[in-house]
């Protein structure tokens, strides 16, 4: 392969890895927004707690990859339900701004709580034997393959749950009308809890994969990644699952490619200018439509 092609392919792989991470987090944002039209700004911090769960499970319980992943997903799912019950449910009929502020507050709480317990950055041990293949100059690691396929797989599962199962039907119904759907016998509180459990569980999966790919974790790691995932969800059309995936791969791709072909100092400036232009052309995001069916 020519050197330019090798370079380009390597950057595409880098973009796929970064986009997959953004996508796993963006799915949680878009799911909760789709059902409750609420932006759960604590989501990035749930992702951070997921990375710490992964650390605890790997170091203190000594568990291998698969049990760690499942335990982390379970842990963050419970955390998501707990947050919803304690912080968001009492405010379900309060003005939208109150819920947003509460979400920011929960995020700060999670950051500072973790900070109090773990002030130093932590090193997550390698749970997988990371094999790096050299494909004619392009390095591909087994971790990259796992991250990309796990993210695509979870998106397909989520898409199936929302569009093809009774629970998904109930979710879509609640997002459609929250006044009359309960009268049809849909258990609103349970369905909302399930929504938060799924969203937070995805953040847990993302936290685990992130902790393996970037094994130095700290309590503030969720802030920037969370923002970028949120932007991905908005660019893709918030409330739309496939849109969140597209938005995430777009943002990851733009960030990597700007760095690859411009001075890296321009990365955020060029990347976000492009995304702003896209929002100007399509204010509801790529797949979003005004008054669309949410989720």
């Amino acid at each position: 392969m020519s050197e330019a092609l090798v370079y380009w392919l390597q950057q595409v792989l880098n973009a796929l890895q970064l986009g997959s991470i953004y996508a796993l987090i963006a799915l949680g944002y878009t799911l909760v927004y789709g059902i409750l039209t609420m932006i759960n700004f604590a989501h990035g911090d749930v992702f951070m707690v997921g990375a710490f769960f992964c650390f605890l499970s790997a170091v203190y319980l000594g568990l291998p990859f698969v049990p760690t992943l499942l335990l982390t997903i379970l842990g963050t799912a419970l955390l998501g339900v707990l947050i919803e019950r304690l912080a968001y449910k009492p405010l379900r009929h309060a003005p939208r701004v109150s819920a947003v502020i509460t979400a920011l507050g929960v995020g700060l709480f999670l950051e500072n709580f973790t900070l109090a317990l773990a002030p130093y950055p932590k090193n997550v041990p390698a749970l997988l034997d990371n094999v790096t293949w050299d494909l004619g100059g392009v390095s591909l690691s087994s971790l990259q393959v796992i991250i990309i396929f796990l993210s695509l797989g979870l998106m397909l599962v989520l898409d199936h749950v929302v569009h093809r199962t009774p629970v998904g039907m109930a979710m879509r119904a609640i997002s459609w009308d929250r006044t009359f759907v309960p009268l049809m016998g849909v258990p609103v509180n349970t369905i909302i809890s399930v929504t938060f459990a799924i969203g937070a569980g995805l953040a847990g999966a993302a936290g685990t994969m992130y902790a393996l790919a970037y094994p130095v974790i700290d309590p503030y790691m969720g802030i920037m990644v969370g923002w970028k995932a949120f932007i991905s969800a908005v660019v893709g059309g918030i409330g739309n699952i496939r849109g969140a995936m597209i938005g995430a791969f777009l943002l990851g791709g733009v960030e990597i490619m700007v760095t690859a072909f411009f001075p890296s100092t321009y990365r955020d400036f060029v990347a976000f200018t492009l995304l702003l232009l896209l929002i100007l052309v399509r204010p509801y995001g790529i797949l979003g439509q005004p008054r669309t069916q949410k989720v």
Partner: peptide, 20 residues
């Protein structure tokens, strides 16, 4: 001569450039 900003964890694009 590559840069990133505080808090970044993914340096793959810059490092690919450096390798090149």
């Amino acid at each position: 001569f590559e840069t990133y900003t505080t808090g970044d964890k993914d340096f793959s694009a810059q490092l690919t450039k450096i390798k090149d």
